[in-house]
């Protein structure tokens, strides 16, 4: 049996943005996809959530200072 990475308390929540969400994100940030931070498609968490190259992953972390912090990564 393999444990789901997402179930581990130290692994933050990762989710793949759908097309509309991705476009909206890029529009609001005013950046091109390539200007986002990256995550490898071979990253275990990317594989687990089924992220494909070109997708944008939304990562929601618990932050000591900010409570919740959101980051996005382009899958390469």
């Amino acid at each position: 049996m393999k444990m789901k990475l997402q179930d581990h308390m130290l692994v933050p929540k990762h989710e793949v943005l759908n097309k509309e969400e991705a476009e909206e994100l890029l529009r609001s940030l005013g950046v091109k996809k390539e200007q986002l931070p990256k995550i490898k498609a071979t990253d275990p968490i990317a594989k687990e959530i089924g992220a494909k190259v070109g997708d944008i992953v939304k990562i929601t972390r618990e932050s000591l200072t900010a409570g919740k912090s959101v980051a996005y990564r382009l899958v390469i």
């Binding site: 091109k32 200007q35 912090s69």
Partner: peptide, 20 residues
């Protein structure tokens, strides 16, 4: 946001996570 000047790469989505 925190960005790299020449390439426009995003480094942080909010400065220091909390924007403080």
């Amino acid at each position: 946001t925190v960005r790299e000047q020449t390439s426009g790469m995003l480094v942080q989505f909010r400065y220091g996570e909390d924007g403080i």
